[in-house]
Nucleic acid binder design. Structure first.
Lengths: 176, 176
DNA sequence: TGCTATATGGAATAATATAACAAAAGTTGG
DNA sequence: CCAACTTTTGTTATATTATTCCATATAGCA
């Protein structure tokens, strides 16, 4: 199954969340990472939409649910989730969104090696819709290759990179 | 004259600064922008090295020089300089660095049209050395083309983009 | 169980950025 | 040059984002 990078605004999001949490559970289990209750709760918050969310927004949402946390608790969970490659941070807006590049297909497979690991990706490419806030993450391979070329010409040794592209998604272009 | 993206750490920086300020004066004059005393002072701070500097570091430096400012004053100047394309902001570190892509050659020409305008560049590419902090800005044309390709395949309408590449510069690789 | 490493709680504070309004300086048309 | 207007800067307060430090709790393991 192939999923659209920018879903319709009125799509049923519960499936996205379910799949993502299911993947997170399996991935952490298999990788020996502890997806604790707190971390899971924070991930649910981040995964609650295809938009990016700020740490203090998460804090407020959880407080509204009766779970009062200190900022540091949320930041620690966000750090963990980012390390695990389950979420990414948008540097330009100090906010976080869930990685959607973990294919549904893989949930039914046994082999751990097929599980996508964004934690190991050194070249991240994000399309950020400035109208609806939705983030689309694209395969960074071709960009990665170009980055290598550019860097090599300067004899620059690349550790990691992040490309944030801002504009308008197809869905918003259609609805205007 | 062609200048290295990553100069030797002990290079004589005064020339860089002089050229940059000279260009800034000419560019603002020609573009009808007011490079006021305050803005010029802030630009001098940002241009004082090839590294990125934070707003509060600028504030502290100026205070040490006897010029006590409010944060907002510095931020306003930084905004102006960024709009003018004279400096850039590193999103991942909340810091600012001077654009070095304004060729010395152009200072001697009369035609304003040859003046480089980063303010109009929609595709910025930065190489950030994590050892020495020096930033190299590279021509984003090829990356820009690739971004268009990627975006087009998603029917995403690009407004602007910024690519931050972190690693180690040639100079630091040599000195380790 | 007890030891150890990891995770969370709690308070305070640091670091980054902006809002709102007043005063000063520059610009323009009479 | 003056008066009206626009732009820039000053001043104070506050918002937003993130971390330090130390105590407590929980999980994994000998």
């Amino acid at each position: 199954m192939t999923h659209s990078l920018f879903p319709q605004h009125d799509h049923d999001h519960s499936g996205c969340t379910t799949n993502l949490m299911k993947f997170a559970d399996r991935y952490c289990q298999q990788a020996g990472l502890r997806l604790t209750k707190l971390r899971r709760t924070v991930l649910e918050q981040v995964a609650s939409s295809h938009k990016a969310i700020g740490a203090y927004q998460i804090l407020d949402n959880l407080a509204a649910d009766g779970q009062k946390l200190a900022p540091i608790s949320v930041y620690r969970s966000l750090d963990f989730l980012q390390e695990a490659g389950l979420i990414h941070r948008l540097e330009s807006t100090n906010s976080y969104f869930a990685c959607q590049r973990n294919f549904d297909d893989e949930l039914d497979q046994e082999s751990p090696s097929t599980l996508h690991k964004c934690s190991e990706a050194s070249s991240l490419v994000f399309l950020i819709c400035e109208e609806c806030g939705v983030i689309g993450e694209v395969e960074g391979a071709s960009i990665g290759a170009l980055i290598s070329t550019v860097a090599n010409s300067e004899m620059f040794k690349v550790d990691r990179s992040q490309l944030e592209i801002k504009g308008t998604c197809q869905t918003c272009q259609n609805s205007s």
